[in-house]
Each structure stands twice: as structure tokens, then as C-alpha cells.
Nucleic acid binder design. Structure first.
Lengths: 194, 194
DNA sequence: GTCTATACACCGATAGAC
DNA sequence: GTCTATCGGTGTATAGAC
């Protein structure tokens, strides 16, 4: 499993391409990533990009994976945290999720909205997103909320708060500051004591 | 204010173009509307489209307006309904909104997600969307929920339910059936008796 | 008004030389 | 691996016949 120097070089170039793609996404919008501008940013010919990615869709796919890995790392904090207080766990989870979404609008669009015409994540990429959802369900089960309806209500509540925050008050806290209230509201109808 | 025969003919052609655009959006996706395919669907030359719309963005704009007018019509049912029972009003509003979103995925993307690269609704088009939000806030004020935080919580809750329903169970009821529970949850923390 | 024809600048993708 | 050249497509625009 030793990655040779060639493979390392290849991986480094792939990483550089993805970094430049994120830059373009932040500058001009997620949908405005073009192969030629992307190549220009890296000082290479557009056709050379196809040496590292099979096409534009594969670049979006790799970005989708990177974004979900970042979310997974965010959830790792939950795993390591003290989980004796369900209310605190959920508040922490919701805050982290909303802040994660608001921190990078392009990433939010890529991960949670179907924002690129004609593009869909590959099965492999989607699997990571599913694993993240499963991790969140695991945390909820741990604090005593295990039924499907509650999990669905939680995803609706947190994704709603996040999407409103990102779309209507980016960088602010108009919905972020509703997290405590939302969690209390959620818990009081769930038979879990605070 | 009498619209002459020429103006009527013009309006009819404009409407036909928008109908064809919606068809294309349903067939191939909202972002895949092309001027040449659109013209072909209507049996006209692509250049003739510019006689009726200044460009592709103007077509998206007109579609955005049509979508928001449809939502406004949906809210008219609320205005005409018996509003003595707050719980029933909110359940009806949430159900109608989720069903409205799920009924037309392309319309949902256009109205509530920034799904077309580089496109934004014009100020005139956006005003209708704002008016719809105001109408919803008016209904909530009528049943005794007037504070901003509650209105924000309501938009987060309903938009979250709708987006989850559309994205993860289109045509189904996995989140739609949570509406009663969501409304009860919302009301019990709002000091409004059922 | 609507058509054809043409032009421009861009796009993703590919072929083939080096 | 990287390049140049090219293909067919796009949105947009214009000229000019009917």
C-alpha cells in the first residue's frame, strides 16, 4: 500500500485542482466553475485537467466528498464530547451544523441543494453523505431518541434553520440564535427530559 | 386599459413560450432550458424568442413570477378558510406549502433554491415572493403569533419539512405526515392554546 | 413579426503530436 | 503528461428577405 512518488505527485496535483475549484466557486459561484478558467488558475491547459479527472462532474464529485468529510470531522467533536445532557448535545449539534453550512455557501449548495444542472453525486460519494446522516442518528439514539419520525423531524428542523440562515441572513445569527428554543421545542414533544 | 387584439396575441405567445419552458424544465431539469430547444418545441426560430423576452434570464424571471403567483393562490385558500382554530390554520398552511413544493420540483428549485448559475430574480419578481411571506406572517398574526422569532421559526420548520420531503421522498408523505406533530410542537412553545 | 443566415465568445470534451 | 487544434454545443446578437 506504499504510494510511490508518482502517485504522490498525482495526488498533489489533484488536490491543487480541487483547491482551485473551491476558490473559483467562492469567487464566482458554484455553478460558474469552468474547465478553462480552472486550468488557467493553475497555469495548465484545460485538456490536462482530464488527466486527473474524467470530467467536470468528477470534479464536483470529489468536492462533494471533501465537503462531506469536513462535515464528518465536525461530527467527530460530538462523538468526543460529554453526552450526559441530551439538550446540550442537540444544541451543540444544531449549532455546529448551521455554522458549518453558513461558513461556506458554495459547499452548502453542493452538499444540500441540487444546485448544479444535470449533476448528481456518484454512489460512492453519496455513501459518505449517508454515513454522516447515520452518525447523527447514532448520536440521537444514544441520548434516547431512536424512532424514525423523530429523526426525520430533527433533519427537517436543522436543515430548515440552516437553509434560512444561509439564504436570508448569511454570516448573521437570525436563525442560529433560535437553536436553543428549537431544541427545547423538539425535546418537550419527545418524552426526553432535559 | 383595453388590451387590443395585437397585445392579446402577444400575451398569448408569451404564455405559450412559458408553458413550453416549464415543459422543458420538467423533462430535462430547470437548468437545461436552452433557447434553441425551447424555440424548436414551439416551432419557431430561436431568434424570434427575443421578440417576446429580452433573454433567457427574463424567461426565468417570468417563470419565477408565475410560480409565486401560484403560491399566492394557494394562500388565498387560507384567507378564505375558517380561522377560528389556530392549530387547524397552521396545519392547513404547512400541508399546502409542502404539497405545493412537492407538486413541481422544477418550480421548487426556481422559487426556493438558487439553482440557476448566475441568475437572480429581478426586484419586481422578488417583490411578489416577499408579499407571499408577508401574507403568511399576516395569517400568523391573526391567530395570535406576531413576534419575529416565531415567524422565523415557522419558516424554518415548514421550509425544512418541504425540502426534506422534496429531496428525499418525492411524491411520498414521509415528512408531510409529520405536519400535525410539527404544528403541535410549534404551538406548545408559543403560548397559544389549541 | 417571423424567418434564415451568420457571427461571436464561450463551454465541455477529445484527438493526436510531442 | 502536456500541449495545440478542433468538434459540436451554448446564449446572444444582428442583418436582411418576406
Amino acid at each position: 500500500m506504499t504510494t510511490g512518488r508518482v502517485a504522490q505527485r498525482r495526488a498533489a496535483t489533484r488536490a491543487a485542482i480541487l483547491d482551485a475549484a473551491w476558490e473559483l466557486a467562492h469567487e464566482s459561484g458554484l455553478g460558474e466553475i469552468g474547465m478553462r478558467p480552472l486550468a488557467a488558475k493553475l497555469g495548465m491547459a484545460a485538456s490536462s485537467l482530464y488527466e486527473y479527472f474524467s470530467g467536470k462532474d468528477a470534479i464536483y464529485d470529489a468536492m462533494f466528498i471533501q465537503g462531506n468529510e469536513a462535515l464528518r470531522d465536525e461530527y467527530r467533536h460530538l462523538r468526543d464530547a460529554d453526552k450526559t445532557n441530551p439538550r446540550e448535545v442537540l444544541i451543540d449539534a444544531a449549532r455546529r451544523f448551521i455554522e458549518f453550512c453558513d461558513a461556506d455557501h458554495a459547499r452548502f449548495q453542493l452538499l444540500f441543494q441540487r444546485s448544479i444542472p444535470g449533476w448528481q453525486p456518484s454512489a460512492e460519494a453519496y455513501a459518505i453523505a449517508v454515513a454522516n446522516l447515520e452518525e447523527m442518528r447514532g448520536h440521537m439514539a444514544y441520548i434516547g431518541i431512536a424512532d424514525d419520525a423523530s429523526a426525520d423531524m430533527w433533519t427537517a428542523l436543522t436543515s430548515g434553520l440552516a437553509s434560512q440562515q444561509v439564504a436570508n441572513d448569511p454570516g448573521g445569527d437570525r436563525w442560529l440564535r433560535l437553536v436553543e428554543e428549537a431544541v427545547d421545542m423538539f425535546l418537550t414533544t419527545r418524552g426526553v427530559d432535559e
